[in-house]
């Protein structure tokens, strides 16, 4: 299966990247933006999805500072082709 691992900074961990983006959006006229957190998306093909949590705990994620969520990526690998709006 093709899986997605969503990695986020743990609650309570200061995320300066998120803060910088949060400050930048209002400067572009986008109001009402709060609590921006920037993490990482890892997509991978796995023969045995049951091994995903162990992969996360041992390498993909540092559990001390990051939380993760495993999501099944349905169908073909994610690309702009099945993603709707395509940015410039």
């Amino acid at each position: 299966m093709r899986a997605r691992v969503l990695v986020r900074p743990k609650q309570g961990i200061l995320d300066p990247q998120g803060q910088a983006v949060q400050r930048a959006l209002p400067a572009l006229g986008f109001e009402g933006v709060g609590d921006v957190r920037i993490g990482r998306l890892i997509e991978l093909e796995v023969a045995d999805p049951a091994q995903l949590p162990a992969m996360c705990e041992r390498l993909l994620v540092n559990p001390l500072i990051e939380d993760y969520e495993i999501v099944e990526a349905a169908g073909a690998p994610a690309s702009p082709l099945n993603g709707g709006a395509i940015g410039g």
């Binding site: 961990i13 200061l14 300066p16 990247q17 910088a20 540092n62 001390l64 500072i65």
Partner: peptide, 8 residues
């Protein structure tokens, strides 16, 4: 753990 500098 070591995290990115607050100044980025």
């Amino acid at each position: 753990a070591l995290l990115p500098n607050t100044s980025l």
